[in-house]
């Protein structure tokens, strides 16, 4: 069975929706078991006090990257039928900076706040309320940032294209960054905060 299953007509839209719920369950289960329902743990990343969040992120990206291109190499998945996210460099950098400030203040990002809300974290419920307001602010006042939001449209723009290297090499670089980034940050955590915190 070659993926994407729904685009290749192997499963129906209804079954795809059922899988969406099931995959979401796996994702939510993993978020909670990784400790991401705790705002304190997430914010700890910004003090190098608990670097589990970046370690999980690095590992997830590397796993998914190797998995996607690996499955494609094995002929099990058709990359041509993927939805690749387009790059809008400047809005993404500015959005990322504001996002980071909000994440350090709020202690959550959208996915973790949803996972935390259902386990009773009151700060997560308030954060979600804020998120709804913030996205309405963006959408209702959209003409104010319409131009900036659509500036610097780079289309699908990948690291291998940026450095003009082979995709395999780009994935290897991502994996190396993940390994050494994780080890380096863990070292800093132990240095600044000790081993038992």
């Amino acid at each position: 069975m070659i993926g994407p299953l729904v685009k290749n007509g192997i499963i129906s839209d209804g079954v795809n929706t059922l899988f969406a719920v099931l995959i979401g369950m796996l994702f939510g289960y993993a978020l909670q078991r990784s400790g991401f329902t705790s705002s304190k743990k997430i914010a700890g990343a910004f003090y190098m006090k608990d670097v589990d969040v970046p370690v999980v992120m690095f590992t997830a990206i590397t796993t998914a990257s190797i998995g996607l291109w690996g499955l494609s190499l094995l002929g099990l998945i058709d990359l041509g039928k993927f939805y690749f996210l387009p790059s809008y460099l400047l809005p993404m950098v500015v959005g990322g900076l504001i996002f980071g400030v909000g994440m350090a203040m709020g202690g959550f990002c959208p996915g973790t706040s949803i996972a935390a809300m259902v386990t009773g974290k009151i700060d997560a419920m308030v954060f979600v309320g804020g998120f709804l307001l913030g996205s309405l602010l963006f959408g209702d006042l959209y003409p104010w940032w319409d131009k900036f939001y659509n500036s610097g449209a780079n289309g699908v723009w990948r690291i291998d294209q940026l450095f003009n290297i082979n995709v395999g090499l780009a994935i290897l670089l991502v994996a190396l960054l993940a390994v050494f980034g994780s080890l380096g940050m863990r070292k800093l955590q132990y240095k600044f905060w000790g081993k038992n915190d």
């Binding site: 809008y88 909000g102 203040m105 709020g106 963006f138």
Partner: peptide, 18 residues
């Protein structure tokens, strides 16, 4: 938490995702 949520809600739309 409220202020952070508002900023993240705005920024996630600006960045086309979270």
């Amino acid at each position: 938490a409220l202020a952070g949520g508002i900023l993240v809600g705005y920024a996630a739309r600006m960045a086309r995702g979270c």
